[in-house]
């Protein structure tokens, strides 16, 4: 083990972090760092060459994740991480492409891409950090903000109805759907690994505390208090009906693995369908030339 100054061994995750960019920008008691920590653990357990793994993020607090992971990593435009990842995967099918971003990015501005990638069973893994708020821009209402929660653009409380994200992606055809909180570190890590191993569109929602904006505006204490809330109020219910997964303000959160099924991925369908229709004349996508 390499030694740091002061004779402390190297942190075991350093090989997958851009250490020259640490400390990261996330606030004290933010849950994104924990989600990243679980992700790195899952990557270390995942039997796949690391050089062939790429991480794509959009914009927002969670959009910064790609910038800290020492793999091929892309920090794209707001909401467009999934289509960017779609291009990356289709152009280089041997890549394992992971989209790691936030709820506002993936479900609001990127919502159309999310449902279509699930519909196509695009072979990418999506990790969605849901902190119920637009944190990077200062705590505005998101399509995931629970009804009654306060945000800087719902200063009298949110009258609107939030998305049930597992229901959304599940009904569009995702092959793996799970939800955990940032406190469920072991289960989250295992779930992330399962999602990585799953062919097709796999999706894990990670409920994570936003201390500076969500917790503060709603007088819920710090991120640690939210972690304690998750501890007391999350219910593990594998295979729960997707319709039951609505999240209400400070009510119980159902977590678990809800969908784990198999259907042909976009690329499998491309190869199988066109191969059948065109016979010998068909040349698969992998055989297409690289740009050089």
């Amino acid at each position: 083990m390499k030694k740091n100054a002061g004779n402390v061994p190297e942190h075991p995750m350093e090989n997958l972090l851009r250490m020259d960019r640490i400390p990261h920008i996330w606030c004290s008691t933010c849950g994104i760092g924990t989600a990243v920590s679980c992700f790195i653990q899952a990557l270390q357990n995942f039997d796949y060459p690391l050089d062939k793994i790429a991480v794509v993020s959009g914009i927002g607090c969670s959009g910064r994740i790609a910038g800290y992971i020492k793999l091929d990593s892309f920090h794209t435009t707001h909401g467009r991480a999934i289509p960017f990842a779609t291009g990356l995967k289709l152009a280089n099918p041997e890549l394992k492409v992971i989209v790691f971003s936030g709820d506002g990015d993936l479900v609001s501005i990127g919502g159309n891409h999310l449902i279509h990638a699930a519909r196509r069973n695009m072979d990418i893994t999506v990790f969605c950090v849901n902190n119920f708020i637009y944190a990077m821009t200062g705590g505005q209402c998101a399509p995931t903000t629970p009804t009654d929660a306060n945000s800087s653009t719902s200063p009298y409380g949110n009258f609107d109805h939030p998305f049930n994200i597992p229901l959304l992606v599940g009904s569009c055809g995702a092959t793996y759907v799970a939800r955990w909180t940032a406190l469920h570190i072991r289960r989250l890590t295992r779930s992330m690994q399962e999602a990585l191993e799953k062919p097709g569109f796999s999706f894990v929602e990670i409920i994570a505390p936003c201390s500076t904006l969500y917790a503060r505006r709603n007088r819920l204490g710090t991120g640690l208090d939210l972690m304690k809330f998750y501890h007391d109020n999350s219910v593990i219910q594998h295979g729960a009906p997707l319709e039951s997964l609505d999240i209400q303000f400070q009510k119980k959160i159902i977590v678990g693995k809800f969908i784990d099924k198999k259907r042909p991925t976009f690329l499998e369908a491309w190869d199988q369908y066109l191969g059948k229709k065109l016979g010998d004349k068909f040349i698969s996508a992998e055989k297409g030339i690289r740009a050089a």
Binding site: H11, G33, T34, I185
Partner: peptide
């Protein structure tokens, strides 16, 4: 190693 996985800052680990 719970602290190691839970720490959002990669600031604690156990050997």
């Amino acid at each position: 190693q719970l602290c190691e996985l839970l720490c959002p800052e990669f600031a604690i680990f156990v050997t």
